[in-house]
Amino acid sequence: MEWITIPDKDPNAQLEHIYREKTDKRILKRNPWRDYRLHITVLILVVIAELIGTITIPIAKDVEITIMPLIYTIILGLVFYLAKPIKWIQRKQARIAEGAMMLFIGVLIAKLAVSSGQSISLIFDMGPALILQELGHLATILVLPIALLLGFKKEAIGMTNSIGREPNVAVVVDKYGFNSPESRGVFAIFIIGTVIGTIFISFLVTFSLSFLPLHPYAFAMASGVGSASMNAAAIGPTLAAFPGMETQIEAFAGFSNLLSFCVGIYIVIFVALPLTEKVYDLLEPKIGRKSIMPKKEDE
C-alpha cells in the first residue's frame, strides 16, 4: 500500500502526503514518453516472462513449487537495473518506474475491487473471518524476542510492530521522531522489504500452499498484508493452487487488502505499537544483548 492517509493527530504532520508528492514529482513533471525506452524494456520483460510461462517443479509427492511469470519480471527488472546490461535504465528511470508504479497500483486495486463487487454477498458472509484475520498481523510481535537476541535495542520496536511498509513508517516516524532508534528500525524493515519482500513472499506462499492444510479463503485473505506489491505477489501462487475459484480469491484478497489499509493502520496505532512496547519492556532486561547499533542519534 503506497498511499495512505494518517489520522490527523499532529497538525504539522506532513508525512501523510510524502508518497503522493513523491509520485507527482516523478511522473507529472516529465512527459512519460521521454522515457519510452523504459516502457519498451518493461514490454520486452513481460513478453519474455509470458512466453516462458509458469514452471512447476515437483519436489515430492503432491508437493510442487510453482514459479510464475511475475517472479521473472520482478527479478529481471532488478537485474536490468543492477547489472546495467542496457545503458538507458539508470537511477532516474528507476525513480520514474517507482513513481509510475504508484499510479499503476490503482489499476491493480480497481481490478480487485471489481472482483469484490461481483462477490459482495460472499464477502458479507465471510465478514467475521475477514475482520478477525487483521488481528493475525499482530503475530509480527512474536519476532521481537529474536530481534532482541540478535542485538537490536529500541530498533526492535520499530522493526516488529508491523510489516513496515509506507503507512507503518509514517506512523512510527510520527510517534518517535525521524532520528529515533525506533524509526531506524522501521526504515531498515522498509528497505529490506522493498528489495526482497515481494520475491520472498511469493516463495513463502508457494511453500505454505504445499505444506499447510488451510482453507483456500484463508490463504486469499492472508495475502492482503498491507503492501500492494506483496499482495500481488502472494495472490499469484494462490490463484494457481485453486483453479476455478479465481473470483472468490481475488475478492477476498482485494477486500482484505482494503481492510489492512483502512483498519490495519488503526490496529498498528492503538494495539500493535503499545503492545510491542509492553513486550519490549518485559523482555529487554531479560534477554537484551549489548547493542550492535553504533551510538549516534543523528544520521
Binding site: V46, T73, L76, G77, L78
Partner: peptide
C-alpha cells in the same frame, strides 16, 4: 506491475 517494481527497487 512487478516489472516496474523490480526496476524501481
Amino acid at each position: 506491475f512487478l516489472a516496474y517494481v523490480g526496476i524501481g527497487m
